[in-house]
């Protein structure tokens, strides 16, 4: 049942020009950044080699590319998640799901899975860029895999926040702005990390992006992964509760 709903979400995305536009825009921007990182690497290569433990091509390019991607997707994920529930509420199609023999959990998980499948397509297209370097050299697959995993978890959080915001309103734009605001705030919190104050550090710990950086260095820390999983679960549970409240509150 979850897959049925996920398949429809995915289909609805690709039936509108939105998904195609987003895929194209992301790909163009990231391709440009990727090429400029490759250029940078070529320019810096000789100097990098003078270090005792030189930064490898994967670490240099993948870390930067995935770092850029997280910010670009932070801007774009709200646009994909905004219509998940709000549009159905607006078009009064939620009644179809509510009166079908399915639970709220299945509805929420189905919609979440649909969005995640779309984001995996984005991720897959993005992974193709560093993989293209295989044509002229070798890659550190450990770092690449850690980066992909980290980005997947980060996108999972973005999507969960977006889904929750979408359950709150019937206006997709409101959902998009709220999601964007929440994600942007989470990014800004990360800046407190450099300060010495305890509050700044605590707030920075709560930032989604703070836990992303170790992945880019190829470090898989269970604590970071657990943090992401917790955020995802929290927002999915909140979404389920919100839809239940729809039925109770009217």
């Amino acid at each position: 049942m979850i897959f049925t709903i996920a398949a429809r979400e995915l289909r609805a995305l690709f039936l509108s020009p939105l998904a195609w536009t987003i895929l194209a825009v992301i790909q163009v921007i990231l391709a440009y950044l990727f090429l400029s990182h490759v250029d940078d690497y070529m320019a810096w290569k000789s100097r990098l080699m003078q270090f005792e433990s030189p930064v490898g091509v994967t670490e240099f390019i993948v870390a930067q590319l995935f770092g850029n991607a997280s910010i670009i997707l932070l801007l774009i994920v709200p646009l994909i998640t905004m219509r998940l529930v709000s549009e159905e509420r607006r078009n009064r199609t939620l009644a179809l799901l509510y009166s079908a023999p399915i639970s709220m959990t299945e509805i929420v998980l189905g919609k979440y899975l649909g969005i995640m499948l779309f984001l995996f397509v984005v991720l897959g297209l993005m992974a193709l860029m560093p993989l293209a370097l295989l044509a002229g050299g070798s890659l550190d697959f450990g770092i690449l895999a850690a980066g992909l995993l980290g980005l997947a978890l980060l996108l999972g959080c973005f999507a969960a926040v977006g889904l929750f915001m979408s359950t709150l309103t019937q206006y997709p734009t409101v959902a998009a702005i709220a999601t964007f605001g929440a994600l942007l705030l989470s990014w800004l919190l990360n800046w407190g990390r450099e300060s010495d104050s305890a509050t700044g550090n605590t707030l920075a710990y709560l930032s989604l992006l703070n836990h992303y950086e170790p992945f880019l260095r190829g470090v898989f820390d269970t604590a970071d992964a657990a943090f992401y999983v917790l955020v995802i679960v929290t927002f999915l549970v909140l979404s389920i509760r919100r839809l239940d409240a729809d039925r109770l509150g009217g």
Binding site: S16, N91, L94, P101, S103
Partner: peptide, 21 residues
């Protein structure tokens, strides 16, 4: 709810149709 809802067909005031399908 699952068994009960399986026995009901419901048409709300506004037909709950997806316009793009």
């Amino acid at each position: 709810p699952r068994a009960a809802k399986a026995s009901i067909g419901y048409l709300p005031e506004q037909p709950p149709v997806y316009r793009e399908l």
